[in-house]
Amino acid sequence: MATDPTPDPATRWLTAREQEIWRSYMATAIELQARLDRQLRSDAGMPVAYYEILVVLSESPGCSLRMSRLAEVCNSSRSRLSHAMTAMEKSGWVSRCAVDGDRRGAVAQLTDAGLEALREAAPGHVTEVRECLFDSLTEQQAEVLHEISQAIGVTLRQRG
């Protein structure tokens, strides 16, 4: 943070090195996400968020999942997921149906067309992930990245 005339002594400010690491991490994470999104939009006609939803549904038992759980797994708000599902239903990739005995609950279901769209999108997406991430790292660096990601994930889940 730039010099603050009245710094709060209770705040644990980042050191200069931590600030450098933070900014580098954020710039890289944002650029990687943007590149993956551009590739999927260009090659498969879908944003990375839709791809993620299709992947999660394809890996779920019966290719279906309660909407509330899908939002949780995709780290999405229910409102954002609902908008995505509406667009994906128009493409024929997913369907929604009510849960018996639960007027507010709904289940997202991957359709055959959605599975086919995922199969067509996957090779280009995986190639982009490999070229932009894994080809830049040694095996040891990839393992360290995994450990770091796991540690951050644990902290985030603990903090709710």
Score class of each variant (00 low, 15 high):
G101D: 01
S60Y: 01
L110G: 05
E143V: 09
C132V: 06
V154Q: 13
L133P: 02
S79V: 10
A71F: 12
I152Y: 08
A84N: 07
C132W: 10
I148L: 15
Q150D: 05
V126W: 14
L57M: 04
M85L: 15
R80D: 12
P61G: 08
E147W: 07
A121Q: 09
P47S: 07
L65S: 05
R78S: 10
Q150F: 11
A151K: 15
S82K: 11
L115Q: 05
A84M: 10
R119Y: 08
Y51V: 00
V48A: 13
E89Y: 02
C97H: 14
D112W: 05
L54M: 03
S149Y: 11
M46W: 02
S76A: 09
T155H: 12
L133N: 07
R96H: 06
V154T: 10
A84P: 00
N75R: 11
Y51E: 11
Y51A: 02
T86Y: 01
S77N: 13
V94H: 07
M88R: 13
T127L: 14
R80M: 10
L118M: 08
S64C: 12
S77K: 15
Q150C: 13
V94P: 06
Y51T: 02
Q141E: 13
E72V: 00
E128M: 12
V129T: 04
E128P: 01
L118Q: 08
S95P: 00
R130V: 11
L54F: 03
L133C: 11
E128R: 15
V99K: 13
G101K: 02
T127D: 15
L70G: 08
A84L: 08
H146W: 06
Y51S: 05
L145W: 05
M88W: 00
M67Y: 07
P123I: 02
E120F: 13
C132I: 01
L110K: 01
C132H: 14
Q150G: 07
G124K: 14
